[in-house]
């Protein structure tokens, strides 16, 4: 998992284009690429094309569960109207989780990069370590920790804060779902930010501190811009899986009102007879939405290293 740390770090300073191939060896790069690219074409691109075809299927009105090939855009209309709240929730919950993960991850990454000293290696291991306990197991543990009789509810009740929670509880509310998403993808935020901060020269930040004489201004004008590649990689690595997740909403949310797009796709695929084309249309819409956001985001805050 530590390899993830590279993602925010980018490559060497301004790597130029690789040198031209010596004549007669122009086939070599293609040979190196062939197996990996072939695998991605057959098991990534081709399945997406198939899924797109399925998203346009029509079903026989009298035989639920049977479809014929068609170009039926109505599936998309249905996917985006009937399940608009779920799309909204996915974006909102993933956005909130990304924000909270950033707020929690930045001080941790900052401390690791500049304050930890010899503890740096240990802290790095500690960030990665929880990954090795199955994430399903940890999410179920959260369900117990956030339960009505659990420790968190107990503490909040004694601080007279529990009534501020939706329905006066944590479990089976959006708070629990967002908390679970934040938790599960937090290391994906920490590692890239740490990697980009580690490269930053602490003297530059000190100079910024002398220049602006204000902690927040220094952070905003010096520290944050220097760590921007890591922040971008981290927010993407958090937002994308969070937006497509259904496990947290399933285990920590309620049966109504906190379901995300992932839950709908999963249930349309496996539990609803005749839901197959709708599930495909939903999947494709989700992917298109996320890809569009990613490309806009990457273009806006520009990082070639990701591409």
């Amino acid at each position: 998992m530590s390899a993830l740390a590279h993602m925010g770090g980018g490559g060497a300073p301004a790597t130029a284009m690789p040198p031209k191939e010596p004549s007669g060896r122009s086939w070599l790069p293609y040979l190196l690429l062939l197996p990996g690219v072939l695998w991605l074409l057959v098991f990534f691109i081709y399945p997406l094309a198939q899924l797109f075809a399925v998203s346009l299927y029509s079903d026989y009105p009298d035989y639920p569960g049977y479809y014929y090939q068609d170009v039926n855009w109505h599936n998309y209309v249905r996917a985006l109207t009937d399940f608009l709240p779920h799309f909204g929730r996915s974006m909102l919950y993933a956005g909130l989780a990304t924000f909270f993960a950033f707020v929690l991850a930045y001080p941790l990454a900052y401390a690791m990069a500049f304050k930890a000293g010899k503890w740096r290696g240990i802290m790095m291991i500690l960030v990665i370590a929880p990954f090795f306990t199955s994430f399903i197991l940890r999410t179920i543990a959260w369900r117990q920790i956030l339960a009505d009789e659990g420790p968190v509810a107990w503490v909040l009740e004694h601080l007279h804060l529990l009534s501020f929670m939706p329905n006066g509880r944590i479990t089976e509310t959006w708070v629990a779902v967002v908390a679970g998403l934040t938790y599960n993808f937090l290391p994906f935020m920490v590692l890239p930010i740490y990697a980009s901060l580690e490269r930053a020269d602490p003297r530059v930040i000190e100079a910024g501190g002398d220049l602006y004489a204000n902690g927040f201004t220094t952070f905003r004008t010096v520290t944050l811009p220097m760590s921007m590649p890591g922040v971008i990689a981290g927010t993407l690595l958090t937002f994308i899986p969070a937006a497509g997740d259904y496990v947290n909403a399933e285990l920590l949310g309620s049966d109504t009102g906190t379901k995300m797009v992932g839950n709908v796709i999963e249930s349309q695929f496996f539990k609803v007879l005749g839901g197959y084309p709708i599930a495909a249309a939903l999947s494709f819409s989700l992917m298109a939405l996320i890809l569009a956001m990613v490309f806009l985001y990457v273009r806006r805050y520009g990082t070639e290293e990701l591409l």
Binding site: L40, F43, F44, Y46, P47, L48, Q50, L51, V54, L236, I240, P241, A243, G244, D245, Y246, G262, I265, E266, F269, A279, A280, S283, F284, L286, M287, I290, L291, V294
Partner: peptide
């Protein structure tokens, strides 16, 4: 593939 939600990868692979 890294920018594609897992659920979409799973759904498309199941299809093929």
């Amino acid at each position: 593939p890294m920018a594609t939600p897992e659920i979409v990868l799973g759904a498309s692979l199941l299809t093929i």
